[in-house]
Computed example of a mutant assay.
Amino acid sequence: MTPAQTTAATLLQTRPEGLYCPMGDFYIDPTRPVQRALITHGHADHARAGHGAVMATAQTLDIMAIRYGADFTQSRQPAAGPQQIGDVAVSFHPAGHILGSAQIAISHKSIGTAVVTGDYSRSPNPACAPFEPVPCDILVTEATFALPVFRHPDPGDEIARLLASVAAFPDRAHLIGTYALGKAQRLIMLLRAAGWDAPIYIHGALQKLCDYHVTQGIPLGDLRAATITRGQKRDFAGQIVLAPPSAFAATWAQRFPDPVICFASGWMQVRARARQRGVELPLVISDHVDWPDLTRTITELNPAETWVTHGREDAIIRWCALQGRTARPLRLLGYEEEET
Results as ranks from 00 to 15, higher is better:
5 Q>V: 07
7 T>Y: 13
7 T>N: 13
7 T>H: 14
8 A>P: 06
9 A>E: 14
15 R>W: 07
16 P>Y: 04
16 P>L: 03
20 Y>G: 00
20 Y>C: 00
21 C>S: 15
21 C>K: 01
22 P>G: 06
24 G>I: 00
24 G>R: 00
27 Y>R: 14
32 R>G: 01
41 H>K: 03
43 H>E: 10
44 A>K: 15
45 D>M: 05
45 D>T: 12
47 A>G: 09
51 H>K: 00
54 V>R: 00
57 T>H: 02
59 Q>V: 10
59 Q>T: 10
59 Q>G: 02
61 L>H: 00
63 I>N: 00
64 M>R: 05
68 Y>D: 06
76 R>M: 12
76 R>L: 11
78 P>H: 01
79 A>D: 12
79 A>M: 14
79 A>T: 12
79 A>R: 11
81 G>L: 11
87 D>H: 09
93 H>N: 10
94 P>V: 14
96 G>H: 08
97 H>C: 06
101 S>T: 05
103 Q>S: 09
104 I>P: 00
104 I>K: 00
109 K>P: 04
109 K>R: 14
109 K>W: 07
110 S>G: 03
113 T>V: 13
114 A>E: 05
122 R>P: 08
122 R>T: 12
124 P>W: 09
124 P>Q: 11
125 N>A: 09
126 P>H: 05
131 F>I: 02
133 P>D: 04
135 P>D: 09
137 D>S: 05
138 I>R: 01
139 L>H: 13
139 L>N: 08
140 V>E: 04
144 T>G: 07
145 F>P: 01
146 A>L: 06
150 F>P: 03
151 R>I: 14
151 R>N: 15
152 H>Q: 04
156 G>M: 09
157 D>N: 14
160 A>Y: 13
161 R>M: 10
162 L>C: 12
162 L>Y: 04
162 L>R: 06
179 Y>G: 07
182 G>Q: 07
185 Q>R: 02
188 I>N: 03
191 L>F: 03
191 L>M: 09
195 G>E: 00
196 W>H: 07
201 Y>T: 02
215 T>R: 12
218 I>H: 15
222 D>K: 02
222 D>Q: 07
223 L>T: 04
229 T>S: 14
231 G>I: 10
234 R>T: 12
234 R>K: 11
239 Q>M: 12
241 V>P: 07
242 L>R: 09
246 S>P: 06
247 A>P: 00
251 T>M: 06
251 T>V: 13
254 Q>T: 10
255 R>I: 08
255 R>V: 11
257 P>D: 13
259 P>N: 07
259 P>M: 05
263 F>P: 09
265 S>F: 13
266 G>S: 08
269 Q>G: 15
275 R>H: 08
276 Q>N: 02
276 Q>H: 03
281 L>H: 02
283 L>T: 07
284 V>R: 01
286 S>N: 08
286 S>E: 12
289 V>K: 07
291 W>V: 15
291 W>A: 09
292 P>S: 11
293 D>S: 15
297 T>Q: 08
298 I>A: 05
301 L>D: 01
302 N>F: 09
303 P>S: 01
311 G>V: 01
313 E>Q: 12
313 E>M: 15
315 A>G: 02
323 Q>P: 03
323 Q>C: 08
324 G>M: 04
326 T>K: 10
327 A>T: 11
328 R>A: 13
333 L>A: 14
333 L>Y: 10
334 G>R: 04
